[in-house]
Each structure stands twice: as structure tokens, then as C-alpha cells.
């Protein structure tokens, strides 16, 4: 089974598709972590929120593309409010307190979603344009999944050029490298952090809508993907765009092939991968060089 090229190709595409979703989800986490040494454990909750808002928008307007465009904005707005109301207030406290507060929000988010949308599992239909399938080595493969892969690549390119070629990108890079010096020479790292945070939230929302037609939408979809995203951040190396991309690719592939070959042990293998990286390269595969430790 393993050596069958069709099987391999299909699973490879599935792996890429999961990697693409994971990349959307973990890039915000990773860059914010690099900037502020803070990880938003409610990031998965924002992803779930994106999926549910997308679901409601599709039901209300009958247009997937409208949901595709608006849900990330709505999630970014939620993220912004959350940042202003809670995180900014806790800036003086240790990052640990911020992390714990976001952990409490997972509970709040889960029950809010249950309250608003119920306990049932929902599915989102793929847009008509992408509802068909294509032939891959004689096997049919849903077009929509190829779209997900393409979207991940596009976002990666946009972020890459955004970080390398724009002023905001330069501020973010400077902030990740050495926050104190960047602040001292007059860069507004706080504002850059806020924008990056909101953008990361929007990407999490985008991942949620996009995941709708592939994975089912249910309360609790947040935590399983959050764990994968955390592993991506740890494996790739926090703070680095390339790290998030490489980590997402690795985790996406290991998870996909693991689930097919040995479903019982898939999560154990993933965890072992993370442990291995932590032991051999504690800063992740693509560590960000920090000015001070």
C-alpha cells in the first residue's frame, strides 16, 4: 500500500492540505511569540470562531466567498477587542499571566460557541467553483483541497514579501531580533505587535472558514488543532516565518501519514518528533538569532 504511487500522491496532497491550514494557524502564534514571548492559547478558539462565523454567513448570504472575506475580519475584530480589554492591561504582568488568561478564554469560547450554535457538528459546502474534482494519477481528488494548498502557498508568499519588503515587516523583524534596541531607536514595537496580533487572528479565522468544507465544524475543533499548531511552533522555531512553514509541512505530513498507517500511534509519533527537536535543537529547526539569549 505504501509503495503504491497513487496512494502516496493522494496522501501527499492531503498532508500538504493539512500543512497549509496549520501554517495559516501557526504563523500568527509564532511571530507573536517571537515578538512578545507570549503565546495565545485561545488561538484555536479564534479558528473555531472563524469556522462558525463562516457557517452563519454562508447560511445568511448563501455565498462562501463572502464568508471567506468577512469571517477573518470578524475574528480579527474579536482579537483586537480581546487585546485591548485584556492583554494590554496585563502587559505589565508576566507573560505567564497572559498565557494563563488566554487559557481561561478557551473555556469561555467553547461554551459560548455551544450556547450560540449548539452542540451539533456542522459541515460547510465547498463553493460551486471548487466543488468538483480533478484527476490525480487516475484517482479523483477534490478541487477544493488543491485550493487550500494554493491558499497556504499564497499566504506564505505574501507574508514573506510583507516581512522582507515593507516597513512594518522591518519593524517586526527588528522587534523579534532585539526588542529593547528596536524600542530604544524609536520604533513603535507595541503598535507593530498589535497589528501582527490582529493579523494573526485574521489568519486563524481564515483557517477556520477554509477548514469548514474539509473538516467538520463542532465545539472542540479548537483544541485538537491548537495542539498541532503548538507543535508546529515548537518544531519550527518560534518567531520565524520559515520555521512556521517548515514546521507546518513536517507536522502536516507526519499527522496525515500517521493517521493512515498507524492511527493509534499518530499522536505519539508527533509528540516524539517534538521531543526529538527539543532535545537536539531547543530553539526549533529554524531558530531566530536573538541578540540576548
Amino acid at each position: 500500500m505504501l509503495l503504491d504511487p497513487t496512494f502516496l500522491a493522494i496522501q501527499l496532497l492531503n498532508g500538504l492540505q493539512l500543512a497549509s491550514l496549520l501554517f495559516l494557524l501557526s504563523v500568527g502564534l509564532s511571530v507573536v511569540f517571537g515578538l512578545m514571548n507570549f503565546i495565545n492559547l485561545a488561538h484555536g478558539t479564534l479558528y473555531m470562531l472563524g469556522a462558525y462565523i463562516g457557517l452563519s454567513l454562508v447560511r445568511a448570504t448563501d455565498s462562501f466567498w463572502l464568508a471567506f472575506a468577512l469571517a477573518p475580519l470578524a475574528v480579527a475584530a474579536v482579537g483586537a477587542v480581546f487585546h485591548v480589554v485584556l492583554l494590554r492591561r496585563m502587559q505589565a504582568a508576566s507573560p505567564m499571566r497572559q498565557v494563563l488568561a488566554t487559557f481561561g478564554l478557551i473555556f469561555v469560547g467553547l461554551d459560548s460557541v455551544r450556547y450560540i450554535w449548539g452542540d451539533y457538528s456542522h459541515a460547510l459546502a465547498a463553493p460551486e467553483l471548487l466543488a468538483g474534482s480533478v484527476q490525480v494519477l487516475g484517482q479523483t481528488y477534490p478541487t477544493y483541497r488543491l485550493f487550500v494548498i494554493g491558499l497556504g502557498i499564497i499566504v506564505l508568499l505574501v507574508l514573506y514579501f510583507g516581512l522582507e519588503r515593507t516597513r512594518l515587516g522591518a519593524i517586526v523583524r527588528a522587534g523579534v531580533d532585539d526588542r529593547e534596541t528596536a524600542t530604544a531607536i524609536g520604533l513603535n514595537v507595541e503598535r507593530a505587535f498589535f497589528l501582527v496580533f490582529c493579523f494573526g487572528c485574521a489568519l486563524a479565522g481564515l483557517a477556520g472558514v477554509v477548514a469548514g468544507p474539509v473538516l467538520s465544524i463542532f465545539p472542540g475543533m479548537d483544541i485538537s488543532i491548537l495542539i498541532l499548531a503548538l507543535i508546529v511552533v515548537v518544531v519550527g522555531g518560534p518567531g520565524s516565518l520559515k520555521g512556521a512553514a517548515l514546521g507546518a509541512l513536517l507536522v502536516g505530513m507526519v499527522e496525515t501519514f500517521g493517521q493512515v498507517i498507524a492511527p493509534e500511534y499518530a499522536s505519539v509519533v508527533l509528540y516524539a518528533l517534538m521531543a526529538l527537536v527539543l532535545v537536539l535543537r531547543p530553539g526549533g529547526l529554524i531558530p531566530v538569532s536573538k541578540a540576548h539569549g
Binding site: 514571548n37 503565546i39 515548537v234
Partner: peptide
């Protein structure tokens, strides 16, 4: 060996795995 936030992430992942 991990500090602070890293320790949180890894312990969460171990438990879920």
C-alpha cells in the same frame, strides 16, 4: 529544561498526545 511558555506548550501537547 524548558522555561516558562515553552514548558506550558510542551506539557499541554504531551497530555493531549
Amino acid at each position: 529544561r524548558l522555561s516558562g511558555v515553552f514548558f506550558i506548550m510542551v506539557t499541554l501537547a504531551v497530555g493531549e498526545a
